[in-house]
Amino acid sequence: MSKPISMSRRKWAAAWAVLCAAGLALTAALDASSARDQQPEKSVSAECDKYIADIETQLAKAKQEGTEDGVVALAGVHAGPENDDCSDAFRDRFGGDE
């Protein structure tokens, strides 16, 4: 029976270092490529920008009055395919933990 080939600890450490470096390089390359593939932000209509500005004004006013935990009422926003960009913009701007 043949004797198994033994590797020194330095060779094992060098092999692990090369594998780790390759893994980090590959991860960085994948992260960079996925960042480029993201869709550009859609522009929203002027009407939608006005609604968002009105809401932000109401929120700022409520914060000044010390009632920032209140409810902001929305009026004039109609559901429909023409306002899909508004719903996405509302969700992007106000959908977080604000």
Rank of each mutant, 00 (worst) to 15 (best):
K3D: 05
P4H: 08
I5Q: 07
S6F: 09
M7N: 11
S8N: 08
S8M: 05
R9I: 05
R10S: 04
K11N: 09
W12K: 10
A13V: 12
A14L: 15
A15N: 15
W16V: 15
L19M: 15
L19V: 15
L19G: 11
L19E: 15
C20P: 00
A21I: 11
A22I: 15
A22K: 10
G23M: 08
G23Y: 07
G23E: 10
L24F: 10
A25V: 13
A25M: 14
A28D: 10
L30Q: 09
S33V: 14
S33C: 11
S34L: 09
S34T: 14
A35L: 13
R36T: 11
D37I: 12
D37M: 14
Q38D: 15
P40A: 13
P40K: 13
S43D: 10
S43K: 14
S43T: 09
V44W: 00
S45Q: 06
A46E: 11
A46W: 07
A46D: 15
E47G: 00
E47P: 00
C48R: 01
D49G: 04
I52T: 02
I52L: 06
I52S: 00
I52N: 01
A53C: 06
D54R: 02
T57S: 04
Q58A: 05
L59C: 00
L59G: 01
A60D: 04
A62H: 03
K63R: 12
K63V: 04
E65K: 03
G66N: 06
G66Q: 05
G66H: 05
G66C: 03
D69M: 02
D69I: 02
G70A: 13
V71D: 04
V71Q: 05
V71T: 14
V72E: 05
A73W: 12
A75Q: 12
A75V: 14
G76S: 07
G76F: 02
V77K: 00
A79K: 05
A79D: 11
G80S: 10
P81R: 07
E82I: 08
E82V: 08
E82W: 08
E82M: 09
E82Q: 13
N83I: 02
N83R: 05
N83Q: 11
N83C: 09
D84R: 13
D84V: 12
D85Q: 13
D85V: 12
C86V: 04
S87G: 09
A89L: 07
R91T: 15
D92W: 07
D92C: 10
D92P: 05
R93C: 01
R93Y: 02
F94S: 05
F94A: 04
G95F: 04
G95A: 04
G95Y: 02
G95D: 03
G96L: 08
G96T: 08
